[in-house]
Nucleic acid binder design. Sequence first.
DNA 1: GCTCGATCATTAACCGGTACACGATTTTGG
DNA 2: CCAAAATCGTGTACCGGTTAATGATCGAGC
Lengths: 143, 143
Amino acid sequence: MPEFLDLHSKASKALRAAAEAAVRRHGLHLGQDHLLAVLWRQDGSTPGEVAAALNVTTPNVVKAATRMAAAGLLTRRRDDRDNRLVRLWLTDTGRALQAPIEEERRHLEDQITADLSETEREHLLSALAKIHRSATALLNEMS
Amino acid sequence: MPEFLDLHSKASKALRAAAEAAVRRHGLHLGQDHLLAVLWRQDGSTPGEVAAALNVTTPNVVKAATRMAAAGLLTRRRDDRDNRLVRLWLTDTGRALQAPIEEERRHLEDQITADLSETEREHLLSALAKIHRSATALLNEMS
DNA sequence: GCTCGATCATTAACCGGTACACGATTTTGG
DNA sequence: CCAAAATCGTGTACCGGTTAATGATCGAGC
């Protein structure tokens, strides 16, 4: 039971639960806010583009988009020029969530990092970045 | 898109993928190694005990146990004295995985934290612990 | 102009996680 | 002793994630 992996797993779980609760207050499920964030930045993105932006697989985006379309957050429309493509367009409901969700996310980050000094926070970010690089490199050299 | 949440999310995903690949080399799925770890420490634990030890819900353990029983890693047996209880017992196969899996996990932690100095590592652990506490406190005061 | 390969979304099947409802058993209180 | 409450495992249904297979469409080359 290595120290870091164990602690990271626990922290991750708690963080995930907190994020879930925060976003659910606005009728969303975890991860849907990320998908919306892509559309807020570029409305009319395709599932493939969204998947690439979020580092998830395309089927995952398709499934989420289906649920979110049913929830009235976005609509699907095929591209006129290239009929293979599907474009996801925000509804007014989906667009209206941007401000509250972004505020909620900022608030969550503030609460989560409240116990950290500024230098602690910087060190944490830099260490996390190194972890991220190592893990990504590990994945690449395996595949 | 707050800095820490975003970075943590990315690092988490990469770490998860790396752990998945590491454990899959031994025929396991992600999370099953944690369940096994509980049984390595205390064979014959009940699903509820395992769930409490792993901070997951009981149905989750039940489902995982069903798959792992099918995979020949453990067996189910009802408790003789209290017939409500079910106890999970390791098979030889499940027991034999302890050394290789623990080694794999140590190796993964070493690779992941290779770029960190000793003080960086300590600071990371302490910061992660604070994050964990904050997130847990946040969850409690919400529920 | 037509075929063959590349590209894209979708579906199905699986795993880990959750909440909720259900049923069986044990324990407690009267 | 017996009814009511607490405990425990399980089933169902959902969400996020994956891989692999399918099907439609577009583009390049002959």
